[in-house]
Each structure stands twice: as structure tokens, then as C-alpha cells.
Design a protein around this nucleic acid. Structure first.
Length: 294
DNA sequence: TCCCAGGCGGTAG
DNA sequence: CTACCGCATGGG
């Protein structure tokens, strides 16, 4: 078991980070800590006074030297969010308010492969069920990690997941997404450098075109992968919540379902100073929490 | 029972 | 190119 303490961090609120819709494997515990599995680590985060205490354990296959190194990477600690918040706050009162509401949001640097499969599963699905399916995949095909006397499972590698047949995937509750997961696993497995090549591409557009070739990856899923695992802050995933908040604030169409995606995309590009992905997270979190409390 | 959920792929026009 | 439809599954 490893421990790491982050002293008085800026823009770092556990609820904001883990409930803003970017991840599926982090869960709030009864004692207000957050517990999750990421890369080859299982980690518990606890806020103590102004500090964040990380405790975790990993498998032998982690690419990271230690917990500190992983935390620095995964939570993107070298990115200064105050600068983004300052810029976006000036856009208008809505952004200002949503940033005040979710001031502690950070966009995680999640594993690209896990993100691809997770968001393929997200299509026409609800969040509790998405989380359950991902947990079942990890339980059946991932690697064990012991922590605090309990057993956790990593998200499987492409090699590990390739052991699942289409039928196996169906039996995990993936529904019609079974073939998409299977096919995409095969594509990525057949190109050893797929992820590496993707990361090296120069433009977001180039990356997106590549992602769209994968079975089960359309425009929205591709944008989620770009934003949540490839640090493409110019990606702007439009889901029902983003459509709703953009319509409510800027477009005012009677029927939000009739609002054209292209119109929203264009508006985001014009308004959000080249970092619409970050703006999206504040707006998404703000809107969803409002709705939950209503 | 019916409806919906962080879309996508396929097909028709 | 856009518009629509079917899709597995489980919870409300």
C-alpha cells in the first residue's frame, strides 16, 4: 500500500471531479472518501482539512513508478485550471456561475483504450447500467488487486478482453453493443501501435477521423474519448444534457430535441475561446446537479 | 405495461 | 447529405 498527500491543491474537489460525468469507476463511499480503479491502481481519496490524501495499491504491470507519479499524471496536476476559469468566467454570466458552482473540476487523463470501450457501452444506455457493465467486464477479464482487505479488478487490456467472445460479451449485459466491443477490440489488437499512433497525431480532427473508424464510435463517443483521455479540450461532446443547457441558455428553441447539433457545435466554437471541452464540463455539471436537486 | 437511457449503424430519400 | 429506425437490457 502506498500513500501520497497533496497539500492544499487548487481546483481539486472530489465531488466535482468524479461527478461531472467524465468517469465510470469512481464511487463515493459512506465515509465521504472516493474509491476507484484506474490504470493498474485502486485508490482511495480523502479530503483532510485542505489536503487530499491518496492511498492505493497497484498490480505489477503498472507503467508508473509509484502512486505520486500516477496521481500527478491522472489528475493532470501540472495543468493550471485557474487560468482557464478566469478566461471562461468572462465569457458571460452563465459560464461565470457554472464555474463558481463547479470550481474544483479537473479533466482526468484516463486510459484511452478503457475510454473507447466505456463510451461504446454508453450508447443509448444509462449511467448506473454503464457502470455495472464495466464492473462486470473488469471482474471477468481484468487483473486482481488487493486493497484494504478487499479485491478489485483492473479494466482488462485489449489482450485480456480479446478472450471474450461476442456471446460472452452479450452475457455481461452489453446488449446490442456486444459486436461493437468485439470488433473494436480486434481492430486495436491487430495494430500493436494503435493507441501510440493515435496519441501522436497532430490535430484533433485527425484523431477524430481515426476514432470514427472503430465500430460503435460515432461523433459523440469520439468527442468523449478525445476530451477525457487525449486532452483535446477543443472537443465538445454533445449529449442530451449539453444540448439542453445550450438550448436553455443560448438558443431558446421550444423543443430542445429539434436543435441542430451543428448549430450547437458552431456556437461552442465561437463562444468558448478554443476550450469548449472545459466549458462543457462546467455547464454539464451545473445543469445536471440543478436538475437532480429540482 | 410502457418508457427511457450520455448514440450508432444501416437504409432510404 | 440528412432523416429516420431498430436495437438489448434493466430500472422507474
Amino acid at each position: 500500500m502506498e500513500t501520497y498527500v497533496l497539500k492544499n491543491p487548487d481546483s481539486f474537489n472530489l465531488e466535482h471531479i468524479f461527478e461531472c460525468g467524465q468517469c465510470f469507476r469512481w464511487n463515493k463511499q459512506g465515509d465521504n472518501t472516493y474509491l476507484g480503479v484506474a490504470e493498474k491502481y485502486v485508490i482511495r481519496l480523502e479530503k483532510k482539512n485542505k489536503d487530499i490524501i491518496f492511498k492505493g495499491n497497484k498490480t505489477k504491470n503498472s507503467k508508473f513508478k509509484n502512486l505520486e507519479e500516477f496521481v500527478e499524471y491522472y489528475f493532470d496536476l501540472n495543468t493550471d485550471y485557474s487560468k482557464y476559469k478566469e478566461k471562461l468566467s468572462k465569457v458571460d454570466n452563465y459560464l461565470d456561475e457554472s464555474i463558481k458552482f463547479g470550481e474544483g473540476i479537473r479533466i482526468l487523463k484516463q486510459d484511452v483504450w478503457e475510454c473507447i470501450i466505456s463510451f461504446i457501452i454508453s450508447a443509448n444506455n444509462n449511467i448506473p447500467r454503464i457502470k455495472k457493465i464495466i464492473e462486470r467486464i473488469a471482474l471477468n477479464y481484468g487483473e486482481k488487486i488487493e486493497f484494504e482487505g478487499n479485491t478489485y479488478y483492473t479494466f482488462p487490456t485489449p489482450e485480456e478482453l480479446s478472450k471474450a467472445s461476442v456471446e460472452d460479451l452479450r452475457n455481461l449485459g452489453t446488449g446490442f453493443r456486444d459486436k461493437r466491443i468485439y470488433n473494436t477490440t480486434q481492430i486495436i489488437l491487430s495494430n500493436e501501435k494503435y493507441i501510440e499512433n493515435l496519441k501522436q497525431m497532430k490535430t484533433t480532427k485527425q484523431m477524430k477521423e481515426e476514432l470514427l473508424k472503430l465500430d460503435g464510435v460515432g461523433p459523440k463517443v469520439a468527442d468523449c474519448i478525445l476530451l477525457f483521455s487525449l486532452q483535446r479540450f477543443d472537443a465538445f461532446p454533445i449529449d442530451v444534457w449539453v444540448r439542453r443547457v445550450m438550448n436553455d441558455l443560448y438558443i431558446h428553441n421550444e423543443d430542445e430535441n429539434k436543435v441542430n447539433k451543428k448549430m450547437i457545435q458552431k456556437l461552442a466554437e465561437e463562444k468558448f475561446l478554443g476550450i469548449p471541452g472545459i466549458a462543457q464540463q462546467y455547464l454539464f455539471y451545473w445543469k445536471r446537479e440543478q436538475e437532480k436537486r429540482a
